[in-house]
């Protein structure tokens, strides 16, 4: 559950999960698989890199049962994600959309700042 004092705005959502930004605590909240996890921005991007680096091809082609799931325990969280291929794809979609929206927000802010100062 997100901290009740948090001042959150939705960054990106899909039917499988959602990411909120808390501008009070300068962090992001990821809701996924029925859990909520807070990330600092650098940790969120590292988490995305970690998820993007998972070799899905190997998971699909290897017959060993250990390849059916990937365990991901992001640093500085108390979360342990147990992900199958479908979860990974869903999580990648959420994180890619989130990253894009964060960068878009940054770009919009830059343009607005410029407009305020120069106009």
């Amino acid at each position: 559950m997100i901290c009740p004092l948090a001042n959150v705005e939705k960054v990106f959502d899909t039917e499988h999960g959602v990411v909120y930004q808390c501008s009070r605590q300068n962090c992001y909240w990821l809701e996924f698989q029925g859990t909520t996890t807070a990330f600092k921005i650098s940790d969120l991007f590292l988490f995305k890199k970690r998820i993007d680096a998972i070799d899905i091809e190997a998971m699909l082609s290897e017959s060993s049962r250990s390849y059916d799931f990937e365990i991901v325990m992001p640093f500085r969280t108390e979360r342990c994600y147990l992900l199958n291929v479908s979860d990974i794809l869903n999580l990648r979609e959420i994180l890619a959309g989130t990253k894009f929206m964060i960068q878009l927000n940054s770009e919009v802010k830059r343009c607005l700042r410029r407009g305020c100062v120069i106009a």
């Binding site: 705005e9 960054v11 930004q21 501008s23 600092k40 921005i41 927000n105 802010k109 830059r110």
Partner: peptide
């Protein structure tokens, strides 16, 4: 929405 990206880093990812 606050720009947390720029608060963290002045370097573009690339």
């Amino acid at each position: 929405m606050k720009d947390l990206l720029k608060l963290k880093s002045s370097l573009a990812e690339e």
